[in-house]
């Protein structure tokens, strides 16, 4: 009898051990083809001669796709310092074949405006020194990038602190990961020279915020920085295909009481269509995967129809409902 129980217990433990795999993430920090080193002189694609004295950013591991398209949310935020080797444990889960990982650089909007001082010091979102929090918005710096630019003499300090809910983008990378006993590691290469692609650093900009260079910076993180070790690129959800999505509003102008037809050139999964009046109040909002959306009974006036996904605006059209 006793033997039997021991045997059963053994079976259960071994099954558990097989089904539960530890999922890690490893990031190889790079500057071009070289390993990332603080204060190394380097050049971006515009030929700006610079170095990096600080590079920290928040990386949210959104989800993994595995075993035939199953999507499992991970929802874990990591504070990455490019000068420190990154090998973090994400979760333990039941996984055999890893297919894709979905990431976002930044902190998701629902966490972005919380009080950091309520968290224990070890938490990635607790106050940090140097700070990763942005005061009066308030919200986190998604990326804090600082260094010297040598394009001018004497050389100058530059700072790129990028943030903003509207710049929180998802990006997906196909990878099988690396398996070892009871463990699977998502291994990514991150080339930070790509993050300053097309950003002119020659005059030592101090860009803190969510527009222009900062938006560009986060788009670069989305589209170019990360590749899998197999060499697969990252595919931003707000990628080129979606960027090219066309939206038309018909008829325009519409007369009072007439149905307004909003047509997308491609289908989009869970896109948000919202219509705002000129005062900025939302008069219509829907989340749809359909190509055509009809809206009726809008009051006469001028409206702006916006298509967005995950907070990022993809396309917008102005239209008029006349009397």
């Amino acid at each position: 009898m006793k033997k039997y129980i021991v045997f059963t217990a053994l079976i259960i433990t071994s099954t558990l051990a097989f089904s539960q795999t530890q999922l890690d993430i490893k990031i190889n920090h790079k500057l071009g083809s070289n390993a990332f080193t603080l204060n190394d002189t380097c050049y971006n694609n515009l030929g700006n001669k610079i170095n990096l004295s600080r590079l920290e950013y928040y990386l949210t591991v959104v989800s993994v796709t595995h075993d035939g398209g199953t999507i499992t949310p991970i929802d874990k935020v990591l504070l990455i310092n490019a000068n420190v080797a990154t090998l973090d444990s994400l979760t333990t889960m039941s996984i055999t074949n890893l297919e894709k990982v979905t990431l976002a650089v930044g902190v998701k909007p629902s966490l972005n405006h919380n009080d950091p001082s309520l968290l224990p010091a070890s938490h990635p979102l607790a106050p940090k020194s140097p700070s990763m929090h942005w005061g009066w918005t308030p919200g986190y710096r998604f990326v804090a990038m600082e260094g010297r630019t040598f394009a001018v003499t004497p050389d100058r300090q530059y700072e790129i602190h990028s943030l903003g809910d509207l710049n929180y983008f998802h990006t997906t990378i196909s990878t099988a990961g690396i398996s070892s006993t009871g463990k699977k590691t998502i291994e990514l290469n991150a080339d930070y020279l790509e993050s300053i692609r097309d950003i002119d650093l020659s005059n030592g900009p101090l860009d803190h915020g969510e527009i222009r260079n900062n938006k560009k910076n986060l788009e670069n993180f989305r589209d170019f920085v990360f590749t899998s070790i197999e060499g697969n690129p990252s595919v931003g959800l707000n990628n080129i295909a979606i960027d090219n999505i066309k939206m038309s509003v018909f008829p325009n102008p519409a007369s009072k009481g007439e149905n307004v037809k909003i047509t997308l050139s491609e289908t989009i999964n869970d896109g948000t269509i919202s219509i705002t009046d000129l005062k900025g109040s939302i008069v219509f909002k829907t989340i749809t995967s359909e190509k055509v959306t009809e809206v009726n009974h809008l009051k006469p006036g001028i409206y702006i129809c916006t298509l967005s996904k995950n907070g990022a605006s993809l396309s917008s059209r102005k239209f008029v409902v006349s009397n």
Binding site: D115, S117, A121, P127, S129, P130, S131, H133, P138
Partner: peptide, 25 residues
């Protein structure tokens, strides 16, 4: 833009033209 007085404390601490400091330090 800041929801509580407790969170507000973080701002002058960090602003470059106020304390220019860091709460961790």
């Amino acid at each position: 833009s800041v929801p509580t007085i407790e969170m507000q404390a973080l701002i002058p601490i960090q602003e470059k033209n106020e304390f220019a400091h860091n709460i961790v330090e």
